[in-house]
């Protein structure tokens, strides 16, 4: 029997705005399955995003949804979670939104280790504005604002999150749909800041400029470049050249979660 996604989708809100071949829909389905697996009460779940194609995701889902300003998802979400720690908080958005204009909020939410799950769709480009390079556009690639090839080095989002103090960091791709919900489930179950980076594709503004002839070519690339972390342990540096690791990249269950820490502050202030 087909999976019932419809009960999670707001009536009348589809079709979505995403282009044919875009991976964001795959991620959204993964998120729905993960929320179902975790039996999240949608009334008690806030889904918070910034601005961009990926940030349109919350509007389709039946929950408390908050489509904020560009880059600010993690900061709004922090306010929601601090004020009502019993709520489940999920952030979603793209690479430009989360790590360029929103980079400061991203790293500090990781540092605090506040209990939320951030699904970051990294498609290497600013799609909604027509394909300008992001902090994740590979060096040398073409974007509408890198007509001679991108001179910028990239952010490795997962490494950034680990370095900043997130306590659960995982990566997969839009070409691995089953792994998406498995990792989001682990992220939701993790008490602390969980970053799920999904390497995604944008055939319209990134693929076409960078010689991917079809969506299939882009999916093949994702499959070819993704190396599960266990498999990578047996590979040489040479073999790993041009690849990225997938799976649970980092997990720390010792670092205190932020709202729990603040509950201790309240106890102290109240003289307990």
């Amino acid at each position: 029997m087909a999976y019932d996604y419809e009960k999670s989708i707001r009536p009348g809100k589809l079709p979505h705005i995403w282009c044919p071949g875009c991976g964001h829909g795959i991620v959204m389905k993964g998120l729905i399955r993960a929320m179902d697996t975790c039996e999240l009460d949608r009334k008690n779940t806030a889904i918070v995003s910034g601005i961009g194609c990926a940030s349109r995701l919350p509007g389709y889902l039946d929950a408390c949804t908050l489509h904020t300003a560009h880059g600010r998802a993690a900061a709004f979400a922090t306010g929601v979670k601090m004020a009502k720690p019993e709520m489940n908080v999920i952030c979603c958005g793209g690479d430009g939104d989360g790590t360029a204009i929103g980079g400061n909020h991203f790293i500090h939410a990781c540092r605090r280790n506040i209990d939320m799950t951030y699904v970051l769709m990294n498609n290497y480009i600013y799609g909604m504005t027509g394909g300008q390079f992001s902090p994740c556009t590979p060096t040398g690639d073409l974007a509408s604002t890198t007509p001679y090839g991108n001179p910028d080095p990239i952010f490795d989002i997962s490494k950034l999150a680990i370095g900043a103090g997130a306590t659960f960091v995982a990566r997969t791709t839009a070409a691995h749909p089953r792994e998406i919900d498995k990792l989001i489930v682990k992220g939701i179950q993790h008490k602390g800041m969980a970053i799920i980076e999904v390497i995604d594709d944008c055939p319209t503004t990134y693929g076409r400029r960078n010689k991917f002839r079809s969506v299939i070519d882009m999916m093949k690339r994702l499959k070819a470049e993704a190396v599960p972390i266990k498999a990578a342990a047996k590979m040489t540096a040479e073999q790993l050249e041009g690849k990225f690791l997938t799976g649970v990249l980092f997990e720390d269950t010792e670092k205190p979660e932020y709202t729990a820490q603040y509950a201790n502050v309240i106890k102290k202030a109240q003289g307990a």
Partner: peptide, 24 residues
């Protein structure tokens, strides 16, 4: 039992206030 948070910047402070207000 209220909450005080020092955010990473002024924009984040404003964002957190709006987020908190939405919870009531």
């Amino acid at each position: 039992g209220g909450k005080f948070i020092q955010m990473e910047d002024e924009i984040a402070a404003m964002a957190s206030v709006i987020g908190a207000s939405l919870t009531g």
